[in-house]
Design a protein around this nucleic acid. Sequence first.
DNA 1: CCGCGCCACTAAACCGGTTTAGTAAAAACC
DNA 2: GGTTTTTACTAAACCGGTTTAGTGGCGCGG
Lengths: 337, 337
Amino acid sequence: MARAAGVSRGAVSFALNDRPGVADATRDRIRAVAAELGFTPSHRARALSSSRALAVGLVIARQPETLSADPFFPAFIAGIEKTLAARGQALLLQVVPDQETERRSYENLAASSRVDGVFLTDLRVDDPRPDLLESLGLPTVVIAPAPIGCRWPVVAVDDRPGISAAVEHLVSLGHERIAHVAGPQEFVHSRSRQEAWADALRVAGLEESPYVWSDFSPSGGARATEELLDLPEPPTAIVFANDLMAIAGTAAAQARGLHVPDDLSVTGFDDTAISGYLRPPLTTVRTDAVAWGSAAADCLLSLVNGDTCPDVLLPPPDLVLRSSTAPPRPTTETDHA
Amino acid sequence: MARAAGVSRGAVSFALNDRPGVADATRDRIRAVAAELGFTPSHRARALSSSRALAVGLVIARQPETLSADPFFPAFIAGIEKTLAARGQALLLQVVPDQETERRSYENLAASSRVDGVFLTDLRVDDPRPDLLESLGLPTVVIAPAPIGCRWPVVAVDDRPGISAAVEHLVSLGHERIAHVAGPQEFVHSRSRQEAWADALRVAGLEESPYVWSDFSPSGGARATEELLDLPEPPTAIVFANDLMAIAGTAAAQARGLHVPDDLSVTGFDDTAISGYLRPPLTTVRTDAVAWGSAAADCLLSLVNGDTCPDVLLPPPDLVLRSSTAPPRPTTETDHA
DNA sequence: CCGCGCCACTAAACCGGTTTAGTAAAAACC
DNA sequence: GGTTTTTACTAAACCGGTTTAGTGGCGCGG
């Protein structure tokens, strides 16, 4: 390439990277030759000489089955890509089955310096990963519902307003026993949703409603629903922490002969693609995972470039009203004896 | 590292790569020092000197929304990872919105030599990509329902037996009008399922049943179902090309007051996580996408290493019997006038 | 007209491995 | 015991960029 343009290798590097010290005429000539030859700088050589991997990593710790059902990651990844592609960076994805493998995965990425930074998702309570990544010196962006006190920037979508809106909607319909089926207790976003639910009930003066910790899976959602409906005083509405559990919970209630929404109102979270095409269509909370991924990638690239990135707060999710919520049946005073 | 062990750089390379020409004692010493120092060879340097990217690529052309709902890719990727991780290779993922971007994406991966090979999924009829990738010289493994005549090896899961099993099951229940809602006509796997459906009907002597091309989406499935139920002689069973359409189709039928399965039997394809937790639980076809990804990765790595890889045929999918299928209602002869 | 500084560029070191060519010492052979 | 072969290792080239130091030519001031 350098020879074809009649200049030195260094000159080519300067010209193509828009650095000063190259005459305009020369720069144009080099550009023209490069275009004509279809010359693309070798990513490998560039990575080695500039000591950058030109890639960022995403490690997902999930069993394949549960990953398949999760609408978040594909959209999130698509958002990441939107930003990365424009900057010539690549996304290196790792799917690992458990937390032990996950740790080794991060250590490996750092040791072999395959990536310049990573995304940290599914933040857990007392998560060891922020510290691990700090000790590994791997720039990190944390994906979470709210900023946390740690060295790394957090790109957050606060899910609380979404849950609050769901609860308020149910309260406005006249519900007084509004249960919650939460995700695993270990996840910060499970906690955040559970707390938002509790807070909204408190504001409405309805603290007595029951909740159960579950696992975001359909079977977990069905089980939790059974449990709630078996209560002496079953709820008239359930706020589920995700759509998958809400859908399975709806089916479980229907299997008992309950009518949704007349006997039981249900809300979900995520707005999965099928949610609007069920019987009844599911009232749920919609998050913009694509924008989330895109913002997270922006932030990570700043970090990688040595800049700082402040915590980012994205717009809160919206409540999507469909037909799985309705006023509760009027209380029949016949059984008050 | 070399100095720490008191040997030359070359010796370290030989020792760590298990190549002959190093005394056992020396090799052990080098290993020990490496372990003690936590030395991991720089992936960047290795990539440059060995002219290999040590990564493979997967380009997915989908809109984020439709990708989110697809249970295939997450599982497929998890399978790929299982194989890659064991061999120190990484997966480079790209999500692009359309086919034009997809083409550029492949060209880019090749030009910047970021990957040693790629997976080719969502094979289309008269797909230009196998030829493109051949001209780019990028080793490729094609993911498809059956071997095709092209230069690249195909790793196939034949979806036909799954569809046949579904049709046979419905026939054995007594159905005679068994419709099909297919995916987009352009995809080879849509065609394959449609043909399997048609063949199975022919075998059963029921060629007259209707079908419509759709798009794998819930709204498409609902629309197609409406269309079929509006027919003068509506089907008593519908074989959908995926679960998403089957679920939405079920809801559409229910919205008309039809009972599933008594008035209309329904089968899906994929066995999505929720499919077993609906009303009614969906009879569907289960594929092992994890094994598919794993096998595809094995094949691609052979190719990358300069070996050849024959076409691989994985075990066909299973029909999972649930409650969305039942015998048709006995024909009421009252309206034969 | 000479000396200084600046511009545009080249030469060469460097990133950190792999790999080939070369060499000294040990082993094998007659 | 001397030659040949083998073994075990080192030195250095190489991958293809980036980056620093260095150099020749030019304009400019005095």
